[in-house]
């Protein structure tokens, strides 16, 4: 059994984000609510955004998913704050490019993304990391 690959996927940062996700809660009064849903696996998160004119002031999320999708949604939620809508969409496109293409993507990947690089070795789990980012990129 090769535990090294597993330890990369389930590294401290992903496990920590899964255990104590950022701004995890239901916010019924949010200005914008989006749903990230993967019908194949059933992962389902709601993203709650408070906006001020064109920028996202505060973001929350709530729902159910695996450690990878929950951690990835947590990181996204944190990084959306302070972005304009266009910046948020661009950031999500960058993340998705970086995730699928690796270093060749010519994207400035922040340290917070690094843990998700391991998902590339688990093709069945790519969609877990992509889920919430795709929702913002396509539906916001």
């Amino acid at each position: 059994m090769d535990q090294e690959e597993l330890n990369k996927l389930y590294d401290d940062s992903i496990l920590q984000e899964n255990r104590q996700p950022y701004h995890y809660g239901k916010m019924p009064d949010a200005d914008l609510t989006l749903e990230a849903y993967n019908p194949i696996c059933g992962d389902q998160f709601k993203l709650f955004l408070y906006t001020d004119e064109d920028s996202i002031k505060t973001a929350y999320f709530h729902g159910y998913g695996c450690a990878v999708s929950k951690a990835s949604t947590s990181v996204l939620t944190r990084e959306l704050e302070g972005c304009t809508i266009e910046e948020a969409k661009a950031k999500c496109r960058d993340f998705l490019n970086w995730l699928s293409e690796g270093e060749g993507a010519k994207v400035n990947a922040p340290n917070s993304w690094e843990s998700f690089a391991a998902v590339r070795d688990f093709p069945g789990r790519l969609s877990c990391a992509q889920l919430a980012w795709e929702t913002i990129a396509k539906e916001l």
């Binding site: 597993l6 992962d43 990878v68």
Partner: peptide, 20 residues
């Protein structure tokens, strides 16, 4: 532990199961 995380870890241990 989410079923998909379990299935990934089991797959790494050489065990094929279904999750979902």
């Amino acid at each position: 532990i989410h079923p998909h995380d379990l299935a990934t870890i089991l797959n790494q241990a050489g065990v094929a199961v279904r999750a979902g």
